[in-house]
Design a binder for these strands. Structure first.
Lengths: 227, 227
DNA sequence: ATGGTGTTTCCATTGGATGAAATTTCTGTC
DNA sequence: GACAGAAATTTCATCCAATGGAAACACCAT
């Protein structure tokens, strides 16, 4: 794959700026130097682009003028984007009752950028040792329970279990929220291997599958509360 | 305002792309033509920029290839950005109990881009006629109850009431969540004028103020769950 | 003081962004 | 089903905006 045949048109400066935006908002870099290093840009160029992002309030600087972080406009657009994901409110009760029944952290995930699953909603578990806050994080579709579900690779039993796949000593169980066209999202439980032994995993898996189809059923209704 | 003395440096193409991004994610435009018109760009330029945004999955096209909408990367960055707003989970119980006590929709807002207040969280009211979903929406700081609070213009009684200010026949009541440095956010109630008569408004205002300071108190604790 | 790192300004160069015009595709309408 | 009008897309010669090296500046640590 030498010399990717420019794929197709694209504005370089914009590409770069977007990379910077993702880098900053993803929390991977904060200072100018880090940003420049990580995106492989000359400092002067990175600075100019960051300033443009800052001007639009897509990023902001730490009060003192030190590092960069997500700006208010990003929060706004994010809130709007998440607001459109009607699955989030729909699944809240389901997640809640899953946590109630299992004590483990429960997630809702949908397809993310690239070949990833994106965790968009969580209800934290009640065990003192629990898996916490992956919201906004992505995991590869290949090799994750949620990913397998989103890809439609679901055994007849209706759920997927994966041990120590994405993270060592962590087991994930996921079930699909089906929708007319395909799969809208995945409900999943994430917790330590030792608590999710095969027998328990099966119990939880069936629970997830049940809750997920309940959500799916409520999907059919569509919104009565129009725009 | 002839020839705004270029303020300061900024990359034009990036500025334009960001404007497009905001336009699309804000739901103000969907088709290429709309985007071009709204941002005052030649169609060919708008198309090129949108394609760049699309390539980074910041925007996506409706399956059939029609209009543009927020892409998965936007959802991801949004989820991350909102995840950093620790006020959201902290205020959830407060909002809930406000709704329980009043039946009106309750909001959490913080400072948004420009001189705006941004609604980031809501618990919908229980009245059949209620104010619904402003999440992701901004209102000007000047001339809104939440804005006045965020600006620190708060009467001694501890809350602000505004009738038919942002929207006709709609009354808003807001109270500040104070933090060492200043004001972290505002809790507010939004509902129809006729239900929020002066006496009721006062009752609700005091309730809001009480809940808000309770949240503020829990802010002092800071996170034990470090990064 | 001295070197090192990060940040910022400056500016000459050039290659990337631009947008008018042409072409194709998609509407509706008669 | 053919036609007009709008929208989407491609192309390409022009030129201006983005670029990045260099140098100045601001901060530290030692």
């Amino acid at each position: 794959m030498p010399g990717k045949p420019p794929a197709i048109s694209a504005t370089r400066s914009v590409e770069r700026a977007l990379t910077l935006l993702a880098t900053v908002c993803g929390g991977q870099a904060s200072t100018l130097a880090e940003c420049a290093r990580l995106t492989d840009l000359p400092a002067s160029t990175a600075l100019r682009l960051l300033r443009t992002l800052e001007q639009g309030e897509f990023v902001a600087r730490e009060e003192d003028g030190g590092g960069y972080r997500a700006g208010p406009r990003m929060v706004q657009l994010g809130a709007q984007a998440l607001g459109h994901e009607q699955l989030i409110p729909l699944c809240a009760p389901a997640l809640q009752s899953i946590v109630g029944a299992t004590g483990e952290s429960a997630y809702l995930s949908v397809r993310g950028p690239g070949s990833t699953a994106l965790y968009v909603s969580i209800v934290e578990g009640t065990h003192s040792i629990r898996h916490s806050s992956w919201v906004g994080r992505t995991v590869p579709l290949e090799g994750s329970a949620a990913g397998a579900v989103l890809l439609g690779r679901i055994p007849d039993r209706g759920y997927v279990t994966l041990r120590s796949a994405v993270e060592k000593d962590v087991t994930a169980i996921a079930a699909p929220i089906r929708r007319p066209g395909g799969i809208a999202g995945a409900l999943s439980i994430v917790g330590p291997d030792y608590r999710l032994d095969p027998a328990t995993a099966e119990r939880y898996g069936l629970l997830l599958a049940r809750e997920a189809s309940a959500v799916a059923r409520s999907l059919g209704v569509e919104e009565t509360t129009g725009a």
